[in-house]
């Protein structure tokens, strides 16, 4: 199996010495092709910081990130922009659609940024909008859509250029449970059928139960890992296991297994 993402002792410190925040304090892990990886942790544990480093929105203090053998730290600004636009997709908690563009225009925005002809992606647009069930809203503006539709449009935008990996920061955070389930089912489906690699940060144990593997993070350090024993373990059982680890969290007792 091919490794898509390789993170080595990543560190991100905010502020100067006396009151320094170690948001990430030596995180190392790998993501392989076609994996659906979840990252869980309490609020302030450094999840968003991690994703932002991976998406090259912020520069890490130390450590290295390799995406398909390319080290992010060595890329120039224009190469980073290309990386953000073409090689990764990003899904936000609050959708981040541009509110004066229609759904279709939002989805096609990455093409317009990277001068990809629309015809090339017409096929993919059709496929994605069918699969994510947003064909009806393509000509609507974000304000005319439901939250679930907005997030699925955002998902289509993240997937339109067929990135190597999709980063999702609490994509279900702003959705009700029904819409959260629909979104997770579609993402898991994309992962299963299209072999899309997904790295998702979440608070929600139910959302996490769709993943193949889950990393737990606390105070900027990885401290536990869960792997779903596919296909033997049902999603339900995996969910129960996640809940158990989560309750350990509260008790502050790592490594129960």
């Amino acid at each position: 199996m091919q490794t898509i993402l390789d993170v080595q002792s990543l560190k991100k410190y905010y502020g100067k010495e006396p009151n320094q925040t170690k948001a990430l304090d030596g995180v190392s892990f790998q993501v392989i092709q076609g994996e659906f990886l979840g990252i869980m942790g309490a609020s302030g544990s450094g999840k968003t910081t991690l994703l932002n480093c991976l998406a090259s929105i912020i520069r890490p203090t130390a450590g290295s990130i390799y995406l398909k053998d390319k080290e992010l730290g060595r890329l120039k600004e224009s190469e980073l922009a290309h990386y953000r636009g073409n090689e990764i997709g990003y899904l936000f908690q609050n959708f981040e659609l541009i509110d004066n563009l229609t759904a279709k225009e939002n989805i096609l925005l990455p093409l317009s940024l990277h001068k990809v002809s629309e015809r090339e992606s017409a096929e993919r647009l059709k496929l994605l909008s069918n699969y994510l069930d947003i064909t009806d809203v393509l000509d609507k503006f974000p304000s005319q859509m439901s939250g679930g539709q907005r997030q699925r449009v955002a998902a289509a935008r993240a997937l339109i250029l067929d990135p190597h990996i999709v980063f999702a920061d609490e994509p279900t955070g702003a959705l009700d449970s029904k819409n959260a389930r629909i979104l997770m089912e579609r993402l898991a489906g994309m992962n299963a059928v299209e072999k899309t690699t997904i790295l998702m940060v979440t608070h929600n144990s139910y959302a996490a139960s769709f993943c193949n593997r889950i990393l737990f993070i606390q105070d900027g350090k990885l401290f536990h890992e869960l792997r779903r024993d596919h296909p033997r373990e049902t999603q339900e059982d995996f969910y129960q296991r996640i809940l158990r680890v989560m309750s350990m969290f509260a008790g502050g007792e790592p490594n129960v297994f």
Binding site: A81, R84, I98, P110, H114
Partner: peptide, 15 residues
């Protein structure tokens, strides 16, 4: 915010 989203989608400052 729109411009920030564009940055996320891979827009450079020049763009």
């Amino acid at each position: 915010r729109r411009y920030q989203i564009l940055v996320h989608l891979g827009a450079t400052c020049e763009t």
